[in-house]
């Protein structure tokens, strides 16, 4: 039975039948590892993040990396064209990906991407929002919840000030952004289910 890769962090959804499972896995890790490192480098630059204990830094990153990657790679999901661009640079239509077995998760990603794009955030706003996403990740395993929540409050306050300054006539923008946090949590849960169901032979 042919297998396909649904994650656009792969070069392409088709698996070269000449490649072994190890080669396919290695190729994915070749994209995944630097992407995670970039998230860590980003986190290090969030004011106050390095003041958290090392344990809490690791646990926040473990819980929040996927959500940050969804924000960063949202533009790969073009809701208007209904295409997904894989890291190899080629676009694949929804119909093509469906025929390969793509699940409902794909629709949820398009929906998230479209709503985020429609907010028309600047680079600075997106960066601050991404910082909020990271520190709003699941708290399980966190030792000092108070410190993480204080950092989250500070960043949300800074985001509200920035959005209010830049979009004075669009008061709903900040609210819409905060509502993306539970959306991201749902996407994270859906993705975890996909990941657990995934087997490479």
């Amino acid at each position: 039975r042919r297998m396909y890769l649904g994650c656009p962090m792969n070069t392409a959804p088709n698996i070269d039948s000449q490649k072994s499972g190890h080669e396919v896995w290695d190729e994915f890790m070749h994209s995944f590892t630097p992407a995670v490192r970039e998230v860590v480098e980003f986190a290090k630059k969030i004011p106050g993040f390095r003041d958290l204990s090392q344990h809490d830094q690791v646990n926040l990153l473990k819980a929040g990396t996927f959500e940050v990657l969804v924000v960063r790679f949202a533009s790969l999901f073009d809701a208007k064209e209904r295409t997904v661009t894989f890291l190899g640079g080629k676009k694949y239509s929804v119909d093509t990906l469906r025929s390969m077995g793509a699940s409902e998760f794909l629709n949820s990603m398009f929906d998230f991407s479209e709503k985020l794009t429609n907010l028309g955030l600047s680079e600075e706003e997106m960066s601050l929002f991404t910082a909020v996403v990271l520190v709003s990740a699941d708290r399980s395993g966190i030792e000092n919840v108070n410190s993480v929540e204080a950092l989250q409050d500070t960043l949300i306050c800074a985001l509200r000030n920035l959005i209010t300054k830049n979009h004075p006539n669009e008061l709903a923008t900040f609210t819409k952004l905060l509502l993306k946090l539970p959306d991201l949590r749902s996407l994270n849960n859906m993705h975890s289910e996909q990941l657990l169901a995934f087997k490479i032979h």
């Binding site: 896995w25 590892t33 657990l196 087997k199 490479i200």
Partner: peptide, 27 residues
């Protein structure tokens, strides 16, 4: 390969990146 969620080695990548492991970065 077992469970890909743990085989992704997320925690290991995060720890090394947090420590600024130069050797790992050069791979």
């Amino acid at each position: 390969f077992g469970d890909p969620a743990s085989n992704l080695g997320l925690e290991d990548i995060i720890r090394k990146a947090l420590m600024g492991n130069l050797e790992e970065r050069q791979e």
